[in-house]
């Protein structure tokens, strides 16, 4: 019994370390990091992976040792039972306490702290109006004298790098969801109300670099939900200003 316990602790440690090792050195799951919030969320993801590793490992360790040491072939003979360990002692209480502590820890960090951080700043340097209608994205730049883009026309949403942006999201008909994987967060577009998402865009990037630079509808919206996407391009500030000027010029030409 004591030897088995030692073995399980050793296995537990090994599986935990290997799991964390895999998470750190082998896994490379994240798409392009296009916003400050992306860094926060990716970090929260990894923290949970580190916390999950020993939980995963304790069950795996017991499964391994059970299959290795206590495996029997064929039906049991008369009286060939395991020891009657009923678990009526202190152990379940300790387990309960440990799992409660773990649950409380993970809900505080990275949960509630991350939530607070995402919510603490409700100011922005620029506003973008995102209107969804089956099955298109319509982008409006109210700070730049009404530049209007639409996914139906094959436009790209262009944003300036290193800028905190407030997306005001609306739906004209049914539910859609505004999501740029490079920026991580998503928010539903709800008929009859305006939902808001703040994103601090950082580096430059485009759909050609990483498909995470796209608006993707993330709420099933019927027939062409699949195709309800729009490319996103994040450019440096001066390039963005040139783009705005060009948009104004071509709009003037049309007029």
């Amino acid at each position: 019994m004591r030897r088995d316990l030692t073995l399980v602790i050793v296995l537990w440690a090994i599986v935990s370390i290997v799991s964390v090792g895999v998470a750190v050195f082998v896994m490379d799951p994240f798409p392009a990091v296009g916003a400050e919030e992306s860094e926060l969320i990716d970090e929260a993801f990894m923290v949970m992976t580190y916390m999950g590793a020993p939980v995963f490992a304790i069950v795996i360790a017991v499964l391994m040792i059970a299959l290795w040491k206590w495996r029997a072939s064929g039906p049991p003979a008369e009286g060939e039972d395991g020891p009657p360990i009923l678990g009526t002692n202190w152990f379940p209480k300790a387990w309960l306490a440990a799992s409660a502590v773990l649950a409380v820890v993970v809900m505080i960090y990275p949960g509630l702290t991350g939530l607070a951080e995402l919510r603490e700043d409700d100011t922005a340097e620029m506003r973008v109006e995102v209107t969804s209608v089956s099955w298109q994205w319509l982008i409006n730049y109210p700070d730049h004298d009404g530049i209007r883009l639409s996914s139906g026309a094959g436009d790209e949403m262009v944003l300036p790098a290193h800028t905190r942006i407030q997306f005001d999201v609306e739906a004209l008909d049914i539910l859609h969801s505004f999501w740029v994987p490079a920026f991580r967060q998503k928010i539903d577009a709800v008929p009859g109300q305006t939902t808001v998402l703040y994103t601090t865009v950082t580096e430059t990037g485009s759909y050609e670099d990483d498909v995470a630079y796209r608006i993707q509808c993330a709420e099933l919206c019927g027939l062409n939900h699949t195709d309800m996407a729009m490319k996103v391009r994040v450019v440096e500030r001066d390039e963005f200003d040139e783009w705005v000027a060009a948009q104004h010029a071509s709009a003037a030409k049309v007029r």
């Binding site: 019994m1 088995d4 304790i58 069950v59 017991v62 499964l63 059970a66 299959l67 206590w70 495996r71 029997a72 072939s73 064929g74 039906p75 049991p76 060939e80 039972d81 395991g82 020891p83 360990i85 678990g87 152990f91 379940p92 387990w95 309960l96 799992s99 409660a100 773990l102 649950a103 409380v104 993970v106 809900m107 949960g111």
Partner: peptide
């Protein structure tokens, strides 16, 4: 939602405690 991991943990406790030192007919 995080709280629900606590009772679920008890199910896992019962599972791994039961196979511990048993005679596993696999």
């Amino acid at each position: 939602t995080e709280l629900i991991s606590i009772p679920t943990g008890l199910i896992f406790l019962a599972a791994i405690g039961t196979i511990w030192a048993g005679r596993l007919w696999v």
